[in-house]
């Protein structure tokens, strides 16, 4: 089996992302859940699988009933883009909430001191 540079790059990046996911989960970082870890493994693991075994898309296409494997790739691409947007919006939401909390603490610091 001939390995291309892009396959090595995707495998390395994906492995790193999965490793970070495990690290975050084990260290119990804020907001880390089993579900998030699973999603991370499925997304990045799926990318490794497709990169190393491109014919996997044929199996996927026939399993979900699509004619050509290009459709499966486009669909996977859409899912990945959706997940990325979802993650970005979640991060913005978390930042907004942190900002509100900091603003609130600053506003109420005087009465908190007295309390």
């Amino acid at each position: 089996m001939k390995i291309h540079i892009y396959q090595i790059a995707i495998t390395l990046i994906s492995s790193l992302m999965i490793f970070k996911g495990f690290e975050n989960y084990i260290k119990g970082k804020n907001g880390q859940t089993v579900l998030k870890l699973l999603v991370r493994i499925i997304v990045w693991g799926g990318m490794v699988l497709i990169a190393l075994f491109p014919r996997f898309t044929n199996i996927l296409a026939s399993t979900i009933g699509m004619e050509g494997n290009i459709n499966a790739i486009i669909l996977t691409g859409f899912i990945l883009v959706f997940l990325m947007i979802f993650k970005l919006l979640s991060a913005i939401e978390r930042l907004e909430q942190s900002l509100s909390q900091v603003t609130r603490n600053e506003t109420l610091k005087e009465i908190k001191k007295e309390d």
């Binding site: 900002l99 509100s100 603003t103 609130r104 600053e106 506003t107 109420l108 005087e110 009465i111 908190k112 309390d115």
Partner: peptide, 27 residues
């Protein structure tokens, strides 16, 4: 007087109401 608080940046009606409720609880 001191019961007039100020958010340094705009956080919206909900954010301001919640700050007010927190202040009232502390008082």
């Amino acid at each position: 007087g001191k019961m007039a608080f100020r958010h340094k940046i705009n956080r919206g009606k909900g954010g301001a109401t919640k700050t007010g409720i927190e202040a009232a609880k502390l008082l």
